[in-house]
């Protein structure tokens, strides 16, 4: 069992792979009336939950761990979604019928989307991270809406008509690999010395500066890093839905991620996994309630906040997320 205590990255990967195997089995084995329990609709939902998890964990890096208040994450998602969709659909005309060409292009395209989103994050973050608290929130929100406006007026991007005919490269496997890689990367970053600097900035910016942390650099870097993952998620999202519209990425979408994050628990990676997983699936489980569904959903949200203010997970982590004890000692020795 020492392996599980010393190789936590492997354990995190194993946990995700087990989840994948369970989901895949449920979608293949004939369990209900000769058909699988999870039909294509539920698979789509689980894929969306995976994308939402990456979005929420990356938002949590800025909001929960660095203590900056960003509510414009969907804007970076839009940058990634449009960049990757333009590359695969409009410029290179790839299709799923030829996966040996399609997938490498798809992977490069979503990475390019991520990089462009990171560049947008740098442009937004550098001047605006001087602002504090609610003012920073408003600037990020405005940046989100500005990005959306630019997309709406740019005819080459489809403008207000949206961009359709995107090949469906995203399937369950892609989402799982993408989620595992992103979460592990962000987890390792958060537990590195950079991660500790971030938490220092959050807890007291002045004290952090006094201990020699370049707070501005730290904040901008985290912002860019998080925008990168938002961009990649956007690319995966675009190739899942096959149609993107600027209104998919309005500030309402950003607020959704904010809800997932704070309901899950903002200072915990586990919380940023549980929040979107529960709150993406929950509205669908309430389909039977029909129009009452979207009335009860916000009520659950408000009641969660009143009775469990710190979010579902609070600041706690699942065991498989934590960094092994042995490595910690080596760092401090």
């Amino acid at each position: 069992m020492t392996f599980f205590r010393t190789h936590r990255t492997a354990v995190t990967v194993i946990a995700f792979v087990l989840t994948y195997v369970v989901v895949k089995l449920l979608s293949v084995l004939p369990l209900v009336n000769g058909g699988p329990l999870l039909n294509g609709y539920y698979i789509q939902l689980i894929a969306l939950a995976g994308i939402n998890i990456v979005m929420t964990v990356s938002l949590g890096m800025v909001n929960g761990f660095t203590g900056q208040f960003s509510i414009g994450h969907a804007g970076f998602m839009a940058v990634g979604a449009y960049t990757s969709a333009m590359i695969t659909t409009v410029w290179l005309h790839t299709s799923v019928t030829n996966p040996w060409v399609g997938y490498p292009v798809f992977i490069l395209a979503i990475l390019a989307g991520g990089l462009l989103a990171a560049a947008a994050g740098y442009l937004v973050g550098t001047p605006s991270l001087r602002l504090k608290g609610d003012y920073l929130a408003i600037v990020t929100l405005s940046a989100n809406e500005l990005i959306r406006t630019v997309i709406r007026v740019t005819n080459a991007l489809g403008g207000p008509r949206g961009l359709g005919g995107i090949p469906k490269f995203t399937n369950l496997e892609v989402v799982f690999v993408f989620t595992i890689v992103s979460v592990v990367l962000m987890r390792n970053y958060l537990f590195s010395s950079h991660g500790r600097s971030m938490k220092a900035v959050r807890d007291s910016e002045i004290a952090a500066e006094a201990t020699g942390i370049n707070t501005t650099k730290q904040k901008v870097f985290v912002f860019v890093f998080s925008a990168f993952f938002a961009g990649v998620s956007g690319g995966v999202f675009a190739h899942l839905l096959q149609f993107i519209h600027p209104d998919n990425f309005s500030f309402v979408k950003s607020l959704e991620y904010l809800i997932y994050l704070y309901v899950g628990g903002s200072t915990s990676i586990s919380g940023a996994i549980v929040g979107p997983a529960v709150f993406t699936v929950l509205p669908e489980l309430m389909r039977a309630l029909q129009q009452w569904r979207m009335v009860i959903y916000p009520l659950i949200l408000v009641l969660t906040m009143i009775f469990r203010t710190e979010g579902i997970m609070g600041a706690r982590e699942f065991r498989f997320i934590l960094i092994p004890q042995r490595q910690r000692k080596e760092v401090s020795a």
């Binding site: 904010l258 309901v263 949200l301 906040m305």
Partner: peptide, 10 residues
């Protein structure tokens, strides 16, 4: 703030 969002949705 999240509660305010919830009230708004509600």
């Amino acid at each position: 703030l999240i509660t305010a969002l919830g009230v708004s949705l509600f």
